[in-house]
């Protein structure tokens, strides 16, 4: 099973990952918990503590501090933007859409899904990772796979459980 530390090492080796290194990980956790009004699942806490700010061109959805006190309202809105569908946005896709972690109560292993802004983030459109580490590795190859026309289902090489996510199918089965 992929771990977050493995995914981070791999992405750092490929120079595809940036950190903030500002020591704000715990602040992020507290702020996000306050915004969503519930404790975060352990895998989300681990991700926030890693302070990842981007994978390739995909920026992380993080609360943003305003000076030494307070937080930026716009960034707070982004963090809350998937609450109505029981999800927590992790990364922007660069065109207004979001990759979000499943927050459904009782989920044993939390998958990551794509949410379409043109559909009002109304539902998970397709699965992009059966776990956060698998998602990060898939995301790193996202644009390259499209540019080089990798075969359909290339994601299964990285994430064999991608087609078993409960809330939405993988992209090649999505409408």
């Amino acid at each position: 099973m992929l771990t977050l530390s493995y995914a981070i090492r791999e992405l750092e080796r490929r120079r595809l990952l940036t950190h903030s290194r500002a020591g704000s990980g715990n602040d992020f956790v507290l702020r996000v918990e306050a915004l969503i009004g519930a404790p975060l699942p352990p895998e989300a806490i681990e991700l926030y503590r890693a302070e990842i700010t981007s994978i390739g061109e995909f920026a992380a959805v993080l609360p943003a501090k305003r000076g030494s006190h307070g937080w930026q309202a716009g960034a707070d809105d982004a963090v809350r933007s998937l609450l109505h569908v029981d999800a927590l946005p992790l990364f922007f896709d660069g065109c207004g859409n979001l990759f979000g972690l499943d927050l459904t109560a009782g989920a044993s292993r939390r998958a990551v899904y794509f949410f379409d802004h043109e559909r009002g983030f109304a539902k998970p459109e397709y699965a992009v990772g059966s776990s956060i580490p698998a998602f990060l590795l898939v995301l790193a190859d996202h644009d390259r796979a499209i540019a080089e026309r990798w075969p359909q289902g290339w994601e299964l090489e990285i994430d064999p459980d991608l087609d078993k996510c409960p809330r939405a199918p993988p992209i090649w089965l999505a409408s």
Partner: peptide, 14 residues
Amino acid sequence: SQAEKQIIRAEARR
């Protein structure tokens, strides 16, 4: 489809 949109969006960013 979402797959078609995904390709268009990647190309838009590029």
